[in-house]
Write a protein that binds this DNA or RNA. Sequence first.
DNA 1: CCATACCTCTGACTTTAGTCAGAGAATTGC
DNA 2: GCAATTCTCTGACTAAAGTCAGAGGTATGG
Lengths: 297, 297
Amino acid sequence: MTQVDAVRRFNRTVTERVGVLHDHYLGLDRPVAEARLLWEIGVRGRDVRWLRERLGLDSGYVSRLLRSLETDGLVTVEPQPQDRRVRTVRLTDAGRAEFAVLDRRSDELASSLLEPLNTDQRARLVAAMAEVDRLLTAATVTLDVVDPDRPDAQHCLRSYTAEVRERFETGFDPARSLLPDAGELRPPHGVFLVARLHGEPVGCAGLKLPAGAPAEIKRMWVDPRTRGLGLGRRFLTELEERAAQHGCDVLRLDTNKALTAAIGLYHSCGFQEVAAFNDEPYAHHWFEKRISTPRSD
Amino acid sequence: MTQVDAVRRFNRTVTERVGVLHDHYLGLDRPVAEARLLWEIGVRGRDVRWLRERLGLDSGYVSRLLRSLETDGLVTVEPQPQDRRVRTVRLTDAGRAEFAVLDRRSDELASSLLEPLNTDQRARLVAAMAEVDRLLTAATVTLDVVDPDRPDAQHCLRSYTAEVRERFETGFDPARSLLPDAGELRPPHGVFLVARLHGEPVGCAGLKLPAGAPAEIKRMWVDPRTRGLGLGRRFLTELEERAAQHGCDVLRLDTNKALTAAIGLYHSCGFQEVAAFNDEPYAHHWFEKRISTPRSD
DNA sequence: CCATACCTCTGACTTTAGTCAGAGAATTGC
DNA sequence: GCAATTCTCTGACTAAAGTCAGAGGTATGG
């Protein structure tokens, strides 16, 4: 059986067993579309555009669904203070009660899947589900080239700065570092990648492409919530390919000794530790990797 | 995170990533309901009632969908020769062509899930999916008490006979065995269980409950296609419970040396090999297990 | 051979789901 | 300050999904 066959088989079993039940459980008292919306609004509330985006629905349709939930007294819709074009939906007390019902049903569905199995089988099912969940999530992450000044990119860079400030023994002051302005990481002198999961930025990585010098990786960061999905490795592969396309045959980077997981990643991706090639004040280790220029076919 | 939380998380990721795409891919040219129907008819054809049952749809609705597929020249509907009330749906050549499109899309969906991952991740995803598939399938199997004369039960018993005839060194003649008539395995002197997957019988097990004597397991069989799902163990657990409820404190069984997997199962379920307690001509091993009467609370 | 049950179909519906083209407010870029 | 853009909403639709109550053949058990 090929990999594709195995995935197909999985799809079939799962859409039958989970998918159908899921909609069925969810939509007992009201149309599934409304229930799904209620579910996505959640206890913390959401912007209308977020809901539209997330569920992939027409704006008019969402508006109508919200109106229906509003007349049933389950939600309130109010303009967002910062930007009064955007409207925020929140559950009322009645809405929260209804949400609790959905929540309980979701539990019931989960239990009904486990119930016929014995202890050992349950443990194995849960472990396998966690693995599938992790890997499907990993496969859902997209990598896009983005201007470093865009809000998504800025969010990542701020998170990067905050994290290294916390973790470096000496703290971190971007102005003292060798790349004070991430703006250098835009074409033609560089590339900046942002990883997104369901539209939310969850990681970034920059590549400096100085003329006639080795390419250099800077400002790589992965959101703690998405670590363990192989995102770092994916960034490295992607940047290596772009550097190669640009005609570079060496890729290098420097890093701080506090970032042990990253150092392990560099080793396992084929980077070799080398002598310092710059005087970055925050660096303790310098790495280099020979890369092959892609053949044009 | 509890097991239920893990399952819920899985449900969410999977219905989002697989479920939605599945319907989307499937229903590009025609309504999903029609596409689903076409998909279920498959190259071999199906009875209308089977389709209705499987998809859980109203009989009038299915009829209408079939009419629509028929006017599009994709299927033919004809009475079944054995029972002319039942009608059988078959794909025409055009229908088969359309089916092939769905088939290709199903492949594409599977590929799109694997595509963003690296080799190692793909292998792990496929392995985890296979495990989830297996265990969800196992959880879908139902065990019902059935009269041994019912068609489902007879199907299983015939399969049992055919298999042991094949596997026993000496062949197998039911008339020479100690239980020539499975009819004894009905209340109040016994129980007969049939396991079903999507309504199809995939296994059976009988329990003799002689007054004042140990309960005895007979005629346990699992369809080769569903082996490895822990069905044998589930039968044993279920029958043990029923024997205990009946007030028995010993459960026993005999078996042939050719059935090595079964013998391993009995050992691992807490059965002890004992001296022959009957003169079943086809038995080489006799097993016994003390069971505890359930407390009434 | 007759009552009963079974299976599928038709007609007449309702409800959901979803689309499309603007209108009207609020914000942003120049 | 004005044009362009963004965001949400309404009206006016269409298509799909699904339900319900029979009608009319076909088998089955006595």
